[in-house]
């Protein structure tokens, strides 16, 4: 397949994944912050930090409130990582690669983009936010479902797999990082309501993993276990290990090319994370660097002829 098309497949799936993750995270925060005591230091702005969008935010807004954060994350067309921007970029990649994708995909992504642009106010205002985000997530899942069922598992599919799993792993590491940060800033407060339960429950839900965690770990929600689950679980599709395995499997099925970073990532994931402190943050940082290297090596390996 054409290098250019391969690159578009890769980006298409990253953008769809990004849009879905953003919608889910806003939904989780929306649900969470309704009934949280003031003493617990979780603010909407965390979402901006998780998405590394502080610069974009500061350039556009001054007040770090719910409305501005939600606007930036869902609707802002000047934010390249906003949900709307991600969906439009996904659509653009489909538009220019319709020759390799199932025909109905084009209709699905069109419908989704149309739905979002017509109902974006429902995302920004609270009243209908839940239903709106739910529909966006369903739209993304519908797209992934169509591809899983309908698309030939050829090279194009492997690039979709690469993009989706790399984006997913990267997002999981960011959400874990946000969990650590919140934990560290609230651990010295004495109160009845255990903030750590709320923080780590939130982390799990942001990765759509609360149910799976309980069934797999058979334990209460607790920081070290949650980290272990999201880092190492072999079966949960959003754990970093699972994503790394998917990436390795996809690489194996693509035209021979050495992705040196894969071995490094494997070593990193084999290590046991220690206490939930700054050293853990450093560890997550190493993971994120490894993801960035993978992204670069994919480019050198398969997309380089393009250009």
């Amino acid at each position: 397949m054409l290098s250019k098309v391969a690159e578009r497949m890769y980006w298409f799936s990253r953008y769809i994944e990004r849009a879905e993750n953003t919608a889910r995270m806003v939904g989780v925060y929306d649900n969470l912050l309704f009934d949280l005591p003031r003493s617990i230091n979780i603010s909407w702005f965390n979402l901006v930090v998780i998405n590394s969008s502080e610069d974009v935010f500061n350039a556009r807004y001054t007040v770090k409130d719910e409305k501005n954060v939600v606007k930036l994350l869902l609707a802002d067309s000047t934010n390249p990582n906003s949900m709307s921007s991600s969906l439009l970029m996904a659509r653009e990649n489909v538009r220019t690669s319709r020759d390799v994708l199932p025909l109905p995909l084009w209709e699905l992504i069109n419908e989704l983009c149309m739905y979002v642009s017509e109902h974006i106010r429902d995302g920004i205002n609270r009243t209908n936010r839940h239903g709106f985000l739910d529909n966006v997530i369903k739209g993304c899942q519908q797209i992934n479902g169509l591809l899983a069922d309908n698309m030939s598992k050829d090279a194009a599919w492997q690039f979709i797999r690469l993009g989706r799993n790399l984006e997913r792993a990267d997002m999981a590491s960011r959400i874990l990082d946000a969990g650590i940060t919140a934990q560290l800033s609230s651990s010295d407060v004495e109160q009845d309501l255990d903030p750590s339960q709320i923080i780590w429950g939130n982390v799990l839900r942001s990765c759509d993993g609360a149910m799976n965690y309980r069934r797999t770990m058979r334990a209460t929600v607790e920081g070290t276990r949650v980290c272990q689950f999201l880092l190492h679980d072999k079966h949960f599709p959003r754990s970093i290990t699972f994503c790394a395995d998917q990436i390795a499997a996809a690489v194996d099925l693509l035209p021979a090319c050495e992705i040196k970073e894969l071995a490094k990532l494997k070593t990193l994931l084999a290590g046991e994370p220690g206490e939930l402190d700054e050293s853990f943050s450093d560890y997550l940082n190493d993971l994120q660097l490894s993801f960035a290297n993978l992204h670069m090596q994919f480019g050198q390996c398969w997309f380089a002829l393009n250009g």
């Binding site: 054409l2 250019k4 538009r95 319709r98 020759d99 393009n306």
Partner: peptide, 17 residues
């Protein structure tokens, strides 16, 4: 162009490809 490439199962290319 995209439609025909898709319908024929042919690659859609630009000059730079």
């Amino acid at each position: 162009h995209a439609f025909l490439a898709q319908q024929m199962g042919a690659e859609l290319v630009e000059g730079s490809d």
